[in-house]
Design a protein around this nucleic acid. Structure first.
Length: 387
DNA sequence: AAGTTGAACAACCGCCCGCCT
DNA sequence: CAGGCGGGCGGTTGTTCAACT
């Protein structure tokens, strides 16, 4: 038995919305809330599919939407989050207040992707295109490791976004109040959770990673726990314990997040009892929330952990607040933000880009690229309204 | 001025997932 | 547990409009 269509399409209007239709939809939602989208069109007197109404509302009519040109900072945030999350527009959108996933997606497809392409950067992998030709074993391995980290964080952000959505759902009863002195940004859980005032603490896992590798680079063993995360990775949301049994190609490592829900103002939060979630389809990653305790288990082959060659530069404690600390990122963002679009990395004038096209330079670039994403994210709670 | 091309963006479509019964 | 429903997500298409020939 096939899925029933979301609505009887016969006789329903399609295509661009007229101002009259917008007005009807707005008036209805302001007065009654959207309730069931399927039932909404008939109640509101619209010859539209409920799904169409929902899209029109969420992407265009909602009052807490900022329209117009994206700022440079927004562009930069999109690019960097895309590097981490890929095409997970909804997850990206949760970190860009007032922007919809659809808008971000369109902006990416029509502007940013092309610009990156022009600059010689693969918009999918966020790596210089010529790197594909230089994928020696070590490089590809480390690239894979970094990607793995990104995947895990992606799962985390996805879950975060899901919680945001759930919270939003619970508070849909707020919408009937929209009619009254319509605030520019209605107080919705979305704003509460990810708005600029209470930024979620994201990417803690990446802090763990940087902490881990910093320790390792100091010559110590990673085996054991990253003690005193409260010191190194102070987070109001969780207390993390890390354990890794052996650092070798074939061992298994776990990172455990053990936190309590109290005082959690952002990030992944257990709400209304038990929430279980799983991350990406990748079965090697799993995370669970149980019994009032955030308990994320990162279970992956230790090839993920074996970033030994990366360790030396994965230092989160440089004290530098410079988002563009690395040469790659500098070369990445400067031409980008300067809108030149013509500058190619293969011909860039960076100090390490001496034109010999050595793999090590590309490798350095890659490290710095991700390192700077981390730095950007890590420093953003205090420096960026986006987090 | 008319036709063509391409960029930008709104909207649609199909799939998927969680919740509920 | 299975199936239906509501809703979200990402990809794609359609439409509009400006720039160009």
């Amino acid at each position: 038995m096939g899925r029933t269509p979301c609505c009887d399409k016969v006789g329903l209007k399609k295509g661009p919305w007229t101002p009259e239709e917008d007005q009807k939809l707005l008036a209805y939602i302001e007065e009654h809330g959207h309730g069931s989208w399927r039932a909404l069109p008939s109640k509101a007197g619209l010859q539209r599919c409920g799904k169409s109404c929902r899209l029109r509302w969420t992407n265009y009519l909602r009052p807490d939407i900022k329209r117009g040109k994206f700022s440079l900072q927004e562009e930069q945030t999109i690019i960097q989050l895309h590097a981490l999350l890929g095409n997970r527009w909804s997850a990206i959108a949760t970190h860009l207040p007032k922007r919809t996933d659809n808008e971000i997606k369109n902006y990416w497809n029509t502007h940013l992707k092309k610009r990156l392409d022009k600059m010689g950067i693969d918009p999918v992998t966020h790596k210089p295109k010529n790197e594909a030709l230089l994928s020696s074993d070590g490089q590809s391995k480390n690239t894979a490791n970094l990607s793995h980290m990104a995947q895990w964080e992606s799962a985390r952000l996805e879950a975060e976004a899901r919680l945001v959505r759930q919270s939003k759902l619970r508070s849909s009863s707020f919408y009937p109040q929209l009619g009254s002195p319509a605030p520019e940004f209605p107080t919705t859980p979305l704003n509460k959770s990810v708005g600029p005032t209470t930024p979620p603490r994201c990417l803690d896992i990446l802090k763990v990673w940087t902490g881990v590798w910093t320790k390792k680079s100091d010559g110590g063993s990673v085996t054991g726990s990253v003690a005193g995360l409260g010191e190194d990775l102070e987070s109001p949301t969780s207390t993390l314990s890390f354990s890794a049994t052996g650092i070798g190609e074939n061992s298994t490592a776990y990172i455990e997040f053990v936190g309590n829900s109290s005082g959690c103002e952002g990030g992944i939060r257990k709400e209304d009892g038990e929430e279980n979630w799983k991350g990406l389809g990748n079965s090697s990653h799993s995370a669970e929330f149980k019994d009032g305790v955030e308990n994320s288990v990162f279970n992956s082959g230790l090839h993920d952990m074996a970033m030994s060659s990366v360790a030396g530069t994965w230092n989160s404690e440089t004290g530098s607040e410079n988002v563009y600390g690395g040469n790659f990122m500098k070369r990445f963002t400067d031409p980008f933000l300067n809108n030149s679009g013509e500058q190619s990395f293969s011909e860039g004038g960076g100090e390490s880009d001496s034109g010999d096209g050595s793999g090590s330079d590309c490798y350095e670039d890659n490290k710095n690229y991700w390192n700077n994403i981390l730095e950007m994210v890590n420093s953003s709670p205090s420096h960026s309204p986006m987090f």
